[in-house]
Design a protein around this nucleic acid. Structure first.
Lengths: 300, 300
DNA sequence: CAAGACCGGTGAGTAAAATTCACTCATGCG
DNA sequence: CGCATGAGTGAATTTTACTCACCGGTCTTG
């Protein structure tokens, strides 16, 4: 009998986000779901209340005054619950969190974004550790690890998918023209990476494109390969995530774009830390910052 | 990043009810789910918070102080949301609600409970209408109807299951001895009911018991049949719900108990009234009052 | 002014979550 | 001791949430 008008609680988060953004699509992005999911939850809520909550225009969504008011109440109510939950949650150990990550992703993606991390999640201190392959949380004293799912993850690790791997050839802008020119393509040097020697083969298999190199060269890590590519040594094959900043700066170009190779990067964590607020905030930040990398429209 | 400690919202209602009752089983009863469902939601919540919320003793559950506090916050937060939702929900038309119901269930079950209804749901005025069979909300100006699912319900009606039909023979206490006595059983008069002529056959089929009556008699409605049984005319077959009060008063006894016949009673409503607060409150009251009728332990 | 991007709605299919069912265990009670 | 009661749980099932792929509008842009 109590709370007879209470709407389905699962509709509240999508609703609140939608009102805040005045957009279902934006809310969906924030919540890491599709716009369809938000659309349906809004419909649930409206059906439950028996009222429409938005004025639907074609490109814009206008929350009604009642919707704004309800959203404000919801925000407030959730704030209270969140605060209460925080108080109850076991005090997190104050020490820094150790995050393990592939060397190149670390150097070319994560480190340049540390200032943003420090700004957005000021209460979390992160220790960075370069590493790949199997994760041993206890042995290596690691709290979180970013890994590509090209090997089986520990059974009990918590995992959050971050973004799909997409690879593509990159080179100095002035070399790009040669690649599409049959005569020039055969005079190009292919740059291989020691830690992922099959990358070129993968790319050829996926795209069906051929590459008949004049010569080949292998460097241990992607950051070295990219360095060589930027120096004009040849054409490297690289993950989009690590090449991204160089592409934006114009130091490298990707004449063939990038294609998914079927693998994805995940954030792995100790199951016991799943409800640690710092872990949650760091996870949220990583998800937010990597969601663009997972976006096909960013295929360049 | 906001609300990083927010627990799954669906766990809040079971949690709040469990704290209030200091019992999962009681909370489950209130929410009309099994205790297992509550148990699992509590586990979800505890996992999400990373803390235990109850001290588990064998027969009793003690909410921790933190749990009490969280429950209080949750109550408060849900109150706010409920109030806001109420304000937004379209003003319900003020008129009385018309409830249609089988004549006997109306006379022998609902009418005796009207004082309780008036006490618990004071803001709802109910018009009662005796009727059975197909429901025509519009034509008959009916808002809600209680019906047994022995015929197809309207496609678009909202429906809430209330309780399982259970039938059994009833008679005056002094006649009961005869029924189990082979010689006496054949001298008994079977009382049939016009609106459900196959009830005795159903019962024989379900129980496998035989009844070789000296004579038979048919009366139109169950309330007449029960009246005759109470007068000692013979043995009636009746739904538990309508015989219940007479059994408790000792006017009738049910020497063979009651058995489910596979059908159930449902509350049907106009889909447009589903979010009407008065309909919700009336539905909640009916569910609460009929849940005992649905309880196998009440098989007498 | 057509081509494409963007937004929200939606049918169908799928994944995930909630719930039930049918048990177990532990224990207090007559 | 046998029974009743309340909670936990593995497996199955049902319900709900979500995704995917598409549609129809409309605003933008070359």
């Amino acid at each position: 009998m109590r709370w007879s008008a209470l709407p389905p609680l699962n509709t509240l988060l999508p609703f609140e986000a939608t009102v805040r953004h005045a957009s279902m699509t934006a809310a969906a992005r924030e919540l890491h779901v599709t716009h369809g999911a938000v659309s349906r939850q809004i419909q649930n809520l409206e059906r439950s209340l028996g009222t429409s909550l938005f004025e639907r225009r074609t490109r814009a969504l206008h929350p009604t005054p009642q919707a704004r008011q309800l959203a404000a109440v919801v925000r407030d109510a959730l704030d209270q619950i969140d605060a209460a939950a925080r108080q109850i949650a076991p005090r997190a150990p104050a020490g820094p969190l150790t995050l393990s990550c592939e060397p190149t992703l670390l150097m070319r993606w994560l480190i340049p974004r540390l200032p943003d991390l420090a700004a957005k999640v000021p209460d979390v201190t992160v220790h960075l550790s370069a590493g790949g392959g199997p994760v041993f949380f206890e042995r290596d004293d690691i709290d979180l690890a970013i890994r590509r799912d090209d090997f089986p993850f520990p059974e009990d690790a918590s995992r959050t998918r971050l973004f799909a791997e997409r690879i593509g050839p990159v080179c100095r802008p002035d070399l790009a023209a040669r690649l599409t020119d049959a005569a020039g393509a055969s005079q190009v040097t292919l740059l291989h990476t020691g830690t992922r020697p099959q990358a070129w083969d993968d790319w050829r298999r996926i795209t069906g494109l051929r590459a008949e190199p004049a010569s080949q060269q292998t460097l241990e890590h992607f950051y070295l390969t990219l360095q060589a590519a930027a120096a004009g040594v040849g054409v490297a094959i690289a993950p989009y995530a690590v090449a991204r900043d160089d592409l934006e700066r114009g130091q490298l170009v990707a004449p063939f774009g990038f294609v998914p190779d079927g693998t994805s990067y995940h954030l792995l964590g100790r199951p016991s830390h799943e409800q640690d607020g710092r872990v949650r905030r760091l996870t949220a930040w990583l998800r937010a910052r990597t969601s663009r990398l997972d976006d096909d429209s960013e295929q360049v």
